[in-house]
């Protein structure tokens, strides 16, 4: 019981269950899944599919945040990736061929890698604060995307490209599969190697890590590059889903959703220990929230306020102060076992 309460995943999971319940009450068919034409359909599938881009970006963001950084440029990178891919497809004589789409996707990803390297360079080599460093690309990036699309909304009609955002494999939406692959890859790559340990170490104490011989520059560059790469994949999914690249609106505000997902998942913005599983739950919470707004019939203009309220609630529940208070209540109710002092404590001023 205590282990459950003190787990960082506890409150995000509770929040997700509460949102599910609200949806279930408003819409009894919420949990039902059906197979139509060999494809899986249902509200949960919609949540997973619509949440995939946010999750993909949030996975990259988790690693960036673990190093004490932040990447504000992911939305702009989404737009650039979409713009590059669409302009290549449109410029090709055969927009519907798999070859064209492959070239477009690879070009978009390569450009994202360059952008990620740029962010990493600013942060790791020039030592610019991450929020400023990535703000540069956040603002300049959309301008660049505009240049690529020449100010137009590029609508593409390419069946292979459409598959990325709206296709299915084995009945499961392709975007969900992509998100799962990225999530698993990030988890394996960081936890099966020492990457995770070194990232956390740099995030907790950069100077101690440097003295211990950790190559923090390389780590930071890797992490920002991965974040941009993930953002480009998300951008391709979004663009494919809309069958159009819109430099102004693709991935708009998605950095905020991604950061929220990370924070809800229990990774501290102060850097250090991170939880990809938490981020997964966080991304689901955010997407379910959006769905809830529709099922419950909250007017869309109130969406942002509603989102803010839920996020505030989760953050409050996770704060050490609230936890301590809760602990006190639980103990004064006499249910607490001896030795349940929470490990995190108010720090000495």
């Amino acid at each position: 019981m205590n282990r459950m309460f003190s787990s960082r995943l506890f409150w995000p999971v509770v929040m997700l269950l509460v949102l599910f319940t609200i949806n279930l009450v408003a819409f009894p068919g919420f949990f039902s899944l059906e197979v139509k034409n060999g494809h899986l359909f249902g509200s949960l599938v919609d949540i997973a599919r619509n949440g995939a881009p946010t999750l993909i970006i949030a996975v990259g963001m988790t690693l960036v945040i673990a190093t004490r950084g932040i990447d504000l440029s992911v939305g702009a990178v989404c737009a650039i990736a979409g713009a590059v891919a669409c302009s290549i497809i449109l410029g090709s004589p055969e927009p519907g061929s798999i070859g064209t789409v492959a070239v477009a996707v690879i070009a978009a990803l390569l450009i994202a890698l360059v952008l990620g390297l740029w962010n990493g360079f600013l942060v790791a080599v020039l030592g610019i604060q991450p929020i400023i460093a990535t703000l540069i690309l956040m603002t300049a990036g959309r301008g660049a995307a505009m240049l690529i699309t020449e100010g137009q909304i590029l609508t593409v009609n390419s069946p292979p490209f459409k598959v990325i955002g709206s296709g299915f494999v084995l009945g499961i939406p392709v975007s969900v599969v992509i998100a799962a692959v990225i999530f698993a890859a990030a988890a394996l790559l960081t936890r099966r190697t020492a990457l995770g340990l070194l990232i956390e170490s740099v995030g907790i104490n950069p100077e101690a890590s440097r003295q211990a011989g950790v190559r923090s520059r390389g780590l930071l560059i890797t992490v920002y590059t991965f974040s941009a790469f993930a953002a480009a994949i998300a951008g391709l999914i979004l663009t494919s889903n809309q069958t159009a690249a819109d430099a102004n609106n693709t991935g708009l505000f998605i950095e905020l959703d991604a950061i929220l997902a990370v924070v809800i998942g229990g990774t501290s913005l102060a850097g250090g220990r991170y939880s990809l599983l938490g981020t997964l739950v966080g991304a689901l919470v955010i997407q379910t929230l959006v769905t809830t707004v529709y099922t419950v019939g909250i007017p869309p203009i109130a969406t942002m306020v509603f989102k803010a309220a839920v996020v505030t609630a989760v953050c409050l529940l996770q704060s050490p102060t609230t936890n301590a208070t809760f602990g006190r209540w639980r103990r004064s109710l006499g249910r607490g076992r001896p030795g349940t002092r929470t490990a995190e404590r108010a720090s000495v001023s």
Binding site: L197, E200, S201, I204, N205, A208, Q211, R273
Partner: peptide, 8 residues
Amino acid sequence: AEGIVEDL
């Protein structure tokens, strides 16, 4: 400041 990594 320069030695241990507290949260590990």
